[in-house]
């Protein structure tokens, strides 16, 4: 949790980390979230996927400097200890990482997802969506 001073706001944001074995594609993302492409609710998750991609910094973990903290790879200080550990584990394995932030002040879909927190994983994708800042 982060504490802001000097400015009162009821907006929120959530930082996310995705680690995947290949370029992140919509079909694989929908599978991770648990919907088929012809699901009547797939459009909700398609919009989330689009927002995630648009908000992401992408890093190919094959080429990172493992002697520095993963926070330097993304030029951020918002990586949680769990995210750092996961990135360090994934570095050098040829995996890809996407890191970014969604904001409750943009779309209703993002507003909803900023009220939730989860961590999902299958054999291809790891999705950490736990770091909510209010």
């Amino acid at each position: 949790m982060r504490i802001r001073t000097g400015f009162v706001s009821n907006s929120s944001s959530t930082s996310f980390l995705i680690i995947t074995d290949d370029e992140l594609k919509e079909g694989a993302f929908l599978e991770l979230m648990g919907v088929t492409s012809d699901s009547p609710i797939a459009d909700l998750f398609r919009e989330l996927f689009s927002d995630v991609i648009n908000a992401s910094q992408y890093v190919d973990l094959k080429h990172v400097n493992t002697r520095v903290s993963p926070e330097a790879w993304f030029n951020t200080d918002r990586l949680s200890p769990a995210m750092i550990a996961r990135l360090q584990q994934a570095a050098g394995q040829g995996l890809k990482a996407y890191f970014g932030t969604l904001d409750s002040e943009t779309t209703m879909v993002q507003t909803f997802f900023c009220t939730d927190a989860f961590e999902l994983e299958n054999e291809r994708i790891y999705f950490n969506y736990l770091e909510c800042a209010w």
Binding site: E31, M33, G34, V35, T36, D38, S39, P40, I41, F45
Partner: peptide, 15 residues
């Protein structure tokens, strides 16, 4: 059933 979600998934719990 209508939502076509995988058992136990995030979408399943949402519905």
């Amino acid at each position: 059933q209508r939502a076509k979600v995988s058992q136990g998934s995030y979408a399943y719990q949402l519905i």
